[in-house]
Design a binder for these strands. Sequence first.
DNA 1: TTAATGTGATACCTTTTGGTATCCTATGAG
DNA 2: CTCATAGGATACCAAAAGGTATCACATTAA
Lengths: 108, 108
Amino acid sequence: MPDLQPTFRALADPTRRDILHLLGGGDMTIAQVTDHFDMTRAAVKKHLTVLEQGNLIRVRPQGREVLNSLNAAALSPIRDWIGFFDQFWDTHLDALKNAIENKDLTHE
Amino acid sequence: MPDLQPTFRALADPTRRDILHLLGGGDMTIAQVTDHFDMTRAAVKKHLTVLEQGNLIRVRPQGREVLNSLNAAALSPIRDWIGFFDQFWDTHLDALKNAIENKDLTHE
DNA sequence: TTAATGTGATACCTTTTGGTATCCTATGAG
DNA sequence: CTCATAGGATACCAAAAGGTATCACATTAA
């Protein structure tokens, strides 16, 4: 089981989530990604580094350029983590259970 | 469609994710949650506030105490966001596609 | 009523984060 | 070869994050 922290961390920023969507459309160089945002290449590069640390993208040098590609598989452990909480879905049974346990049977 | 940012933000901290697991075992006061961590009540309270902003817990005063309860439903939009990327699962077709496009047909 | 207890709120500190500007290196086009 | 161009690396900055200590307030126990 991988360390989820770098991935959760990478997902916590809206720009980075946008980048993932962008890369869904195809591999991109850093310059190409930067064209879609109102910030410098250096800032985008930092986001890409965080995404790589979270295993969410693959970085592949191609001559002078560097292609960044989506690695959607990294989302699988995140989904699994969320899955643990499926058992806690509130079907309003909790509220009923609490009412009974608290013996709060007053009518208003 | 709710704003996912507060929820993603709340999930980005390991202590907060631990708190969610804790609350899966039942509602807890701030003091009870604090007992499980090596930090002050004030710090835990801050984490609980962030979790509440992310809609991941419900906070309910009960006399002098305050009960915190898990709201697993808040994870649903997150799961949906992740679901968008299902179409990008790498079945090694991407690698093949790139190889063809690049006409990189050298053997080794 | 008085004291203990559970919580809220604030000020403060340090580290991390998201961003810029700048300079350096490497590759590819003419 | 020369030089424009894609990136890497670093220093720097302001704001946010995670934590503590402290004090004030409300509720409950004695």
